[in-house]
Design a protein around this nucleic acid. Sequence first.
RNA 1: GCGAACGUAGCUCAGUUGGUUAGAGCGCCUGACUGUGACUCAGGAGGUCGGGGGUUCAAGACCCCUCGUUCGCCCCA
Length: 414
Amino acid sequence: MSLPQPVRGTHDLLPEDYLRHAHVRETAREMASRFGYAEMATPIFEFTEVFARTMGESSDVVSKEMYSFESRSGESMTLRPEYTAGICRAFISNGLQQNVPFKAFAAGPMFRYERPQKGRQRQFHQIDVECIGAAEAKADIEVIAVGASILHKLGVLEHCTLEINTLGDQESREAYRAALVDYFSDHKSSLSKDSLDRLGRNPLRILDSKDKGDRILVENAPLFTDYLNSFSSEFFAEVLDGLSLLGINYELNRRLVRGLDYYTHTAFEFVTTALGAQGAVIAGGRYDGLIEMLGGKPTPGIGWAGGIERLAMLMDDVPIAERPIAIVPVGETAEAFTAKLAYQLRQEGLNIEMAFKGNVGKRMKRANKLNARAAVLIGEDELARNVCSLRDLDQGEQSEIPLSELSAALGALG
RNA sequence: GCGAACGUAGCUCAGUUGGUUAGAGCGCCUGACUGUGACUCAGGAGGUCGGGGGUUCAAGACCCCUCGUUCGCCCCA
């Protein structure tokens, strides 16, 4: 087969797939809206700086995964690899400091040049929730609650575990980072190759290493809790209390860290074991330093992103497309009348299917394939008497009703 | 970026130790049923065996390269 194929890591969303995606998106939009998060959108590409500065030059995303290109003006542009930086940029660009807390919901495609796997693509889609300008732990709790609600509404919460940790404030994080570097530097010889690399870029990551040797070292590594200042640990305790109050279950995961530079305090992930190596379906945290990195006034923020493909894969039942009513003209004489009838019924809000060609048998088959709820047959016979034959395709029962009652009868089908 | 497996009709897969015109099920099209779907029956279309090169009298099967998918690592939604 040398049929043209989509670019590696990209996928076509055929109607059935799209329906699942749409369901995730709509559900998320609706739940987020109940918490006061209004939908917005930012451009799919930004100046490269927006991502490079906020995510950290040394992060994997920036150093090797960005789809960057030079525009005709000679400036470096990048297809967004995540939503947070763009929304924060928009927050600054539009002077939204006036509107804090600024609570936003967004959804759309993201791009990362990665090795594709199940649940991991080069163009993928995310839903995203951000709360900017709130330093309170209540914001952390709310943002996580939005995520839990969406998962619950999608029917996948039971397949997920909320893992949570704190990275502390800047001061705590710096102190701990220094302690870790000290500790692991003394054991360089027994560190794995990957972790040696992490030591320079992001030492916190070593805590999450899957290497057996690293694990043993990690056992005796300094504990973050010993380096959290009192503000940080009290903040975290407040977040956990709030979650408990709402009945949102969580598991403390002291090894949970984030790859991106801008995270502080609360870090969390809703993870599942159902998707192989790609466990996270929703992940996020607090990013109190980010707005400042982008050149805005110091502004706290917290949010998360969820993978639509991953969520769609977790859903058990496929949402069913709306069922049409099939209009079937019998013989050419009825064509004109049925064409007009179909148009009218559509104006009235009904979902009408009418084939372009075919005899009654063909049209009935097509109606069946499209999962039509009923078929309305109209031929010379019916026309002459101002009636139609209404066939219930589920029950297999057919009856004749006056055309004047058709609209009401179809409405009553449910 | 690293390691491994896989790649045969639209889909899910058979294809014996390399040996004539490459098969099945589902789906699709046509007809039995020229005013009636789901069930049944009978026909039919559809494959340069991912692509390229090599070994051989002979390759879907073996070797190399390439593209793609999957699994793990890295990292992440």
